[in-house]
């Protein structure tokens, strides 16, 4: 997924002379082809995210389309005020490609866990946020990012993610994807939580439960209409996110349903990460397992909930 995203930047840059790549001291060899082919639009900066975002804003003011890439936490936290004021207040088309969304960098510890990005970015006016679930979807959404108005945050997963969207023709920024029509239950997901929920649905189906899956590649602006249409027909909706339970995707779904569907009779349940710093290392999978975000746990939660709220 990361490779797809970065290769797409090069591809877009080859076809549009305004596209720039801006990196913050990334690993050696990143986008070497682009560096060789169009070195003037391959900007590898030092470890100075505040300046990088301000500089990218200046470039965008002059008509460039900077794609800024570094580790998600460094791209969102260190330079938060630059994102708010330089980029979003001026409503500039700067694209933020955040590596390691969620728990990808688990072995590197809490400094690298990007588990608050949705929460801190979605409160910024003009900001849009996407979290594709696989490389196929990433490719489509990257193509569309070229003409997306205003700032855009692109959350990257680990890579090598199971392809799940390749059978769908229409993948768009701003549109939620019904992977399986909602029935009694509904999982509503973003990023690679979609694959986990999909695997849980396979288990549930074997047991005779009818559960749908709505994948929201775009967290902001949320495809409210599709979300509401799916939620209103489900007895149980479970949101799943690789993000703090506070302020992120599940909170957004709760807010949206509360506002747009005040008489909703279905049960809404949020699954996400607890409000604490991880004390563990290991890997992404062991963290997800620790926090109960596995196909087995999702299966059990949905089954149990459908039995209670039938």
């Amino acid at each position: 997924m990361r490779k797809t995203a970065l290769n797409k930047v090069f591809e877009l840059a080859q076809n549009n002379k305004n596209v720039l790549f801006v990196g913050s001291d990334l690993g050696a060899g990143v986008l070497n082809d682009m560096k060789k082919s169009i070195p003037e639009r391959f900007l590898m900066e030092g470890v100075c995210e505040q300046n990088i975002i301000g500089m990218s804003s200046g470039l965008a003011m002059e008509g460039f389309l900077p794609y800024v890439n570094t580790i998600g936490t460094f791209l969102t936290r260190r330079c938060y005020e630059q994102i708010v004021l330089d980029v979003c207040l001026h409503n500039l088309p700067v694209r933020f490609i955040g590596n390691g969304g969620g728990l990808v960098y688990a072995p590197l510890g809490p400094t690298h866990l990007s588990t608050d990005d949705f929460a801190i970015l979605r409160v910024i006016p003009n900001m849009s946020i996407i979290a594709p679930c696989d490389a196929y979807e990433m490719g489509h959404l990257m193509d569309q990012s070229l003409n997306w108005p205003g700032p855009l945050y692109i959350r990257l997963a680990r890579g090598g993610d199971q392809l799940i969207t390749d059978k769908f023709k229409k993948l768009e920024i701003g549109k939620a994807l019904i992977i399986k029509e909602p029935e009694d239950g509904l999982f509503i997901t973003t990023g690679v939580m979609t694959q986990i929920a999909n695997a849980a649905i396979e288990l549930l189906t074997k047991d005779g439960y009818k559960v749908g899956l709505l994948h929201c590649s775009t967290v902001k602006p949320l495809d409210t209409k599709t979300v509401i249409n799916c939620v209103k027909n489900s007895k149980v909706t479970i949101s799943v996110e690789e993000h703090s339970i506070l302020g992120g995707f599940g909170s957004l779904i709760l807010e949206t349903v509360n506002e747009k569907l005040p008489n909703n009779k279905g049960k809404l349940i949020r699954i996400g990460l607890p409000d604490n710093f991880s004390k563990n290392y290991g890997d992404q999978e062991s963290h997800l397992n620790h926090y109960g975000i596995t196909k087995e746990k999702l299966y059990l939660k949905m089954k149990e909930s459908l039995n209670v709220y039938k």
Partner: peptide, 25 residues
């Protein structure tokens, strides 16, 4: 007014980007 400012330390990085854009073009 070329840039919204008020929080300090923002105008110069923006100016660097603008000057760099002029160089690139």
């Amino acid at each position: 007014i070329e840039a919204s400012t008020g929080s300090l330390g923002h105008g110069l990085p923006i100016g660097v980007g603008i000057a760099l854009a002029a160089k690139l073009r």
